[in-house]
Design a protein around this nucleic acid. Structure first.
Lengths: 124, 124
DNA sequence: ACAAGTACTTACCCTTTAGTATGTATTATG
DNA sequence: CATAATACATACTAAAGGGTAAGTACTTGT
């Protein structure tokens, strides 16, 4: 498990900024490159670990499990393990994670629009 | 200017994933901790460099200017400098940046709801 | 006996991002 | 002549995140 240190400026930012800036709160939970991508792929329903891996081939197993754990810790998704061999583990969105879907959906919408209008580069 | 290297797995991910996963496209542009926070503070209108700094006290000047430059490069905001002394520089959202506001707004909404329901931690 | 499959773990290293501290140009002001 | 103010730049360091490679446990299939 990767240790989390609590002494950077970002950490200090948490203390006061959460009341000041709601976006800061979001960045604590889904900041970073992979987390929104993982959440996006779980938006269509629960997936096994290996299914998530296949959905995002570029992610390494170490980083995937690391991000999944952090998302669990932040109560954005739920891990369910069946005690069988070979292991059967699924990940699904928690209620909190489900409530994030408007954010992910807004991202997807923006991305699709931008990629279209990427032709007209010198807007404004 | 911070150089950008193009050889990580994340970079490879860009090649194919942009067509597969729209969220990846978004993460290229606003991934990281500070960018959405900066965009949030510019959503209420153009601000001078020093105003942005005051709005986000925890960010260092180096990181702020670095993120502002990257956001410019990605055409999310526009820098306007008046050739006066002392300098007068404002930053504002581009049209592309404006179109991102639904994402930022969705984040803010989620954050506010979550902080309220943070009391009931063991949901589901 | 051995390979395969699942869901990981561990060790090590490299890149990116962030933080600290100091410096710069220009002009107005005391 | 020194100081202040703005919007940076630069050098160095530290922390976080990400990448590579290999290993583990357990059982089923060959």
């Amino acid at each position: 498990m990767t240790a989390v240190k609590e002494n950077s400026t970002i950490q200090e930012n948490k203390q006061y900024a959460l009341e000041q800036c709601p976006v800061t709160y979001v960045m604590e939970k889904i900041g970073g490159y992979w987390k929104p991508i993982i959440l996006y792929h779980l938006s269509s329903g629960a997936k096994r670990y290996s299914e998530v891996k296949r959905a995002i081939p570029a992610i390494t197993e170490k980083v995937l499990i690391q991000q999944l754990k952090q998302l669990q810790t932040d109560n954005l998704l739920i891990r369910e393990a069946k005690p069988v061999v070979p292991p059967h583990v699924t990940y699904k969105l928690s209620q909190s994670g489900e409530r994030l879907m408007p954010v992910i959906a807004a991202m997807a919408t923006w991305a699709i629009n931008e990629q279209e209008s990427d032709l007209s580069k010198f807007e404004e």
